[in-house]
Design a protein around this nucleic acid. Structure first.
Lengths: 194, 194
DNA sequence: GCCGAACGATAACATATGTTATCAAGTTCA
DNA sequence: TGAACTTGATAACATATGTTATCGTTCGGC
């Protein structure tokens, strides 16, 4: 969350350095639950090595919301900030190396940063990006067909297609795994034409 | 955006009072474009009386993203904050009374507020809410059928169904207006059973 | 090496949704 | 008032997508 802004707001750099040591390194196998839907988020998560997904359960059916990779940080934002039960589960897809920063330190860090005028700018930048991300996802769903969305994944975020099992991608695209298989098959046939 | 937080952070109240006079009152008929897709947002918009929608154009086809009503404020956030072309058009649905606060004052206001430790907290609250809103919309689309989404509108935001023409609601739900008509018809028949 | 689980493709059928066209009622405005 | 526009319903047909089931492959653990 915050550590990505190292060097972009140099005045704040000392804060990052001060809190990095409080992170706890964890090695976890694939399919490890880092935060269970319904529980209150207690850590900020930073990914050193892995692929992670967030999803929620709907009538026994997983709905994948987002994927995260190396050098990305995440939390169940609402749960973390407002101490409410998380709407999502966070789970590793691959064997992983992650760092956990307990909430108390994040809270403390935010309190300290509140006195820095640059902090407000940083938050505005950070949150406007997250917001744009979610708006873009939203827009993509109501504008594009699942086939178009899959092609966008292929061209713009190919690492997802390469590393993530297909049924997770299907649930992310909002279609059944059977239909995603059909889409792939159709695209493959299209490429074969000459 | 900010004025909703009056009294929630009392230390910041004087700032709101100081900038309110810079707002410009505007009366506009229905279907007035307040911000054109592709243009850079120059004002923060506050709605005194009206129903407003944001949408984008996709191959000549409107896709409605969100509705706003009395006492709500909005801007094309990314465009406003980062001075990039807006992805959305903002348009009145009804004859309206709105207030426009020019961007320069908002920027100035933010600069002043940056020195207030409470401001960071306010932004975190504000943005976590917006973020939750978009996440919820996102989740609703991938979890619920259009019929379920329409029923949610009926029960949780009936004012939208009452005041907004049906084809806008259809484009918001992500279905054709014909299909929304079918959904309504189906629900009506369901209610008639005994 | 074996076995079960995870993964992915495909078929067959049912349902949901889009597209186009037509009709009717209400509204606006000259 | 009359014409044009907006709104909404409905029918008929085409297409997209879900569901269920089956099959083959791969992969990790024992």
């Amino acid at each position: 969350m915050f550590f990505h802004f190292k060097d972009r707001f140099p005045k704040l750099n000392t804060y990052w350095d001060k809190y990095l040591p409080f992170q706890k390194r964890v090695e976890a196998p694939a399919k490890t639950v880092l935060l269970q839907e319904g529980k209150i988020s207690q850590h900020y998560i930073f990914i050193e090595k892995a692929c992670v997904r967030t999803f929620f359960n709907n009538n026994g059916d997983d709905k994948t919301v987002q994927f995260f990779f190396e050098n990305e940080g995440l939390s169940s934002f609402d749960s973390f900030m407002n101490s409410v039960p998380s709407s999502f589960t966070i789970e590793t897809i691959e064997p992983s190396v992650i760092y956990l920063l307990p909430k108390q330190y994040v809270t403390q860090l935010i309190d300290e940063l509140s006195h820095e005028p640059d902090f407000a700018q940083m938050i505005l930048q950070m949150t406007s990006r997250r917001q744009m991300h979610y708006i873009n996802e939203f827009v993509s769903i109501i504008r594009d067909t699942p086939e178009q969305r899959y092609q966008l994944l292929l061209t713009e975020r190919p690492h997802i297609v390469q590393r993530v099992p297909q049924h997770y991608i299907a649930s992310y695209l909002g279609v059944s795994k059977v239909h995603l298989s059909r889409i792939k098959s159709k695209l493959a046939k299209g490429k074969l034409r000459f």
